[in-house]
């Protein structure tokens, strides 16, 4: 049941399936009184500090973009100022930010759906078909996850031009599906491995075909796994810069591409790029808060345990 190193002397008890994991475990309070309280205080303080450090680039950017333009980047930096939202207003009025954002979301959602649509059955097949071909596929999926973008995307640039789909969302989606799909197989395979084969056999005795077993029996059981893989696929696609940079010109740039092309600008455009970063960041922060519990649950239930 281990994924990688073949470590076998693992956790002792079988790892519970997702439904159990989502339940808060009853925790025993360790004895210790005063000392424990002090330690908890220290741990809390330390974590607060870490959180602050991890968020500081975002917080500083939030300050930069709400400053008046003339002091946005002065040195030494100014810490007090009258906040204004002008950079956001200008961004919205003078650029097509709305369409960049919708391009980004559409590309991310569609490519995630396709990656899962391809990845789920493939992962299921891999988990039930012990043969050399499964080994080859899995190793290939691993290597494909690690390919340098240029090796794939520059030829895609050429190919998409000759197919006439260059500079469309279709080209970006196709590229992202190709790039992300191998990893979804990789994440999902272990969830399937967790589900006992007897279940398949029982369902097939009832007259289900393999495809029916997958959709009627496996997928409902795989909720947390598919959700986990989906969240990762979405994040990868949402963040992708090089692929969208190389495969788009005027019709479907994504927000990361837009922001990157604004980095070589002067004020006030540079401040607008900062505003764009914040507008892009806020929804994904909400996403992070919601996603974290599913990720922990999903990941511990299947994909990567030792």
């Amino acid at each position: 049941m281990s994924t990688l190193t073949g470590a076998t002397e693992s956790a002792g008890e079988a790892v519970p399936l997702a439904d159990d994991v989502l339940q808060p475990r009853p925790r025993r309070r360790r004895a210790g009184g005063e000392g424990a309280a002090g330690r908890r205080f220290m741990v809390g303080g330390l974590l607060l500090l870490v959180c602050w450090a991890m968020l500081s680039p975002v917080l500083w950017t939030a300050m930069v973009v709400t400053k008046p333009t003339s002091i946005a980047f002065i040195n030494p930096p100014q810490f007090t100022y009258h906040p204004s939202l002008d950079a956001f207003v200008n961004l919205w009025q003078t650029t097509d930010f709305y369409s960049y954002l919708s391009n980004t979301v559409v590309v991310a959602v569609v490519s995630t759906l396709f990656a899962l649509l391809l990845g789920v059955p493939a992962a299921y097949a891999l988990s039930r078909f012990p043969s050399w071909i499964s080994v080859v596929l899995l190793v290939a999926a691993l290597v494909f996850r690690a390919l340098p973008r240029f090796a794939v995307v520059l030829p895609m640039y050429d190919i998409s031009r000759s197919l006439g789909i260059y500079d469309t969302k279709i080209a970006v989606v196709a590229a992202l599906v190709a790039i992300n799909q191998p990893f979804s197989i990789w994440l999902l395979r272990n969830f399937f491995a967790e589900i006992p084969q007897q279940l398949d056999e029982a369902a097939m005795l009832d007259g289900c075909s393999r495809v029916q077993v997958l959709w009627r029996v496996m997928v409902p059981l795989m909720g947390p796994g598919i959700l986990t893989a989906g969240i990762f696929m979405f994040l990868f696609a949402f963040q992708e810069y090089l692929t969208a940079l190389i495969l788009t010109d005027v019709h479907s740039p994504t927000v990361p591409v837009f922001i990157a092309t604004q980095l070589g600008q002067t004020l006030p455009l540079l401040q607008q790029a900062g505003a764009a970063s914040m507008l892009l960041t806020l929804p994904v922060i909400a996403f992070a808060f919601i996603a974290q519990r599913y990720l922990v649950a999903g990941l511990s239930a299947g994909s990567v345990k030792g």
Partner: peptide, 19 residues
Amino acid sequence: VLGLLLVPYVIPQIVGATM
């Protein structure tokens, strides 16, 4: 805390590096 700490991971790298 998990949600807060995940923030840098969900920001596109090019944007994060600019920040």
